[in-house]
């Protein structure tokens, strides 16, 4: 009856009610494009060109992991990676994201059930209502890719674009520090000389 997200298209004209509605594909403000999300190609046809990447992910592609807390780039709950760059998907026009590699929270972990960041969030108490959580998970993965040994202040700065109203951030900081330390320890075991200089793919 109800599902999280959906794969069909909500704005297809309702033919019985709208017999005079012209073909959607002919509308001047509509377009067709291909999105590559989490390694999968999706064809979008006759979509209104004003739709944000967030809207298309959530409502056309059945990927509701990116959340809709402000839809003006302030809260970070819709964070995704576009060509490896952390962005608020609410501020990206979906039609401009064709040909780029988009990674959402659903695409993290490449087959693993949970990434090390996701495990740490559940174990430290970093999750309460969970609405900000997917955006934070994407942001923290991005941070630790770019900076394997962030200081507390660097962590605070990196996640300061992700608003959380439940936790006061304390357990989130603990989760990030837990992953940072575990990854550094794993790297140090793997290559004692170059400890922490590189991170193993899929570590954790």
């Amino acid at each position: 009856m109800t599902t999280a997200g959906r794969a069909d298209q909500p704005d297809q004209p309702d033919q019985p009610d709208q017999p005079d509605q012209p073909d959607q594909a002919d509308q001047p403000d509509q377009c067709s494009y291909t999105l590559s999300v989490n390694g999968q190609e999706h064809e979008l046809r006759g979509a209104w060109m004003g739709e944000s990447l967030l809207y298309v992910l959530r409502n056309r592609l059945g990927l509701p992991g990116a959340k809709n807390a402000c839809e003006q780039g302030e809260c970070g709950s819709c964070s995704v990676l576009v060509d490896g760059e952390l962005v608020c998907s609410c501020l990206v026009l979906a039609a401009t994201a064709g040909g780029r590699e988009i990674v959402t929270v659903e695409g993290l972990g490449a087959g693993e059930r949970f990434t090390d960041v996701q495990v740490a969030f559940t174990e430290t108490g970093a999750v309460q209502c969970g609405f900000c959580t997917p955006g934070l998970i994407v942001t923290v993965h991005d941070l630790l890719e770019r900076n394997p040994r962030p200081s507390e202040l660097e962590i605070r700065e990196a996640i300061s674009g992700n608003l959380c109203r439940c936790t006061g951030y304390g357990r989130i900081l603990e989760a990030v520090e837990t992953v940072r330390d575990a990854r550094l320890a794993a790297a140090s075991r793997a290559a004692p000389v170059a400890a922490g200089a590189t991170r193993q793919e899929g570590a954790g």
Binding site: T2, E106, F121, T133, I137
Partner: peptide, 18 residues
């Protein structure tokens, strides 16, 4: 509900569809 929440699979009221 921590697992579904970190995976982005937890169905918030804004995620529902029929």
């Amino acid at each position: 509900d921590g697992g579904p929440k970190v995976k982005g699979e937890f169905a918030f009221s804004s995620d529902l569809w029929a």
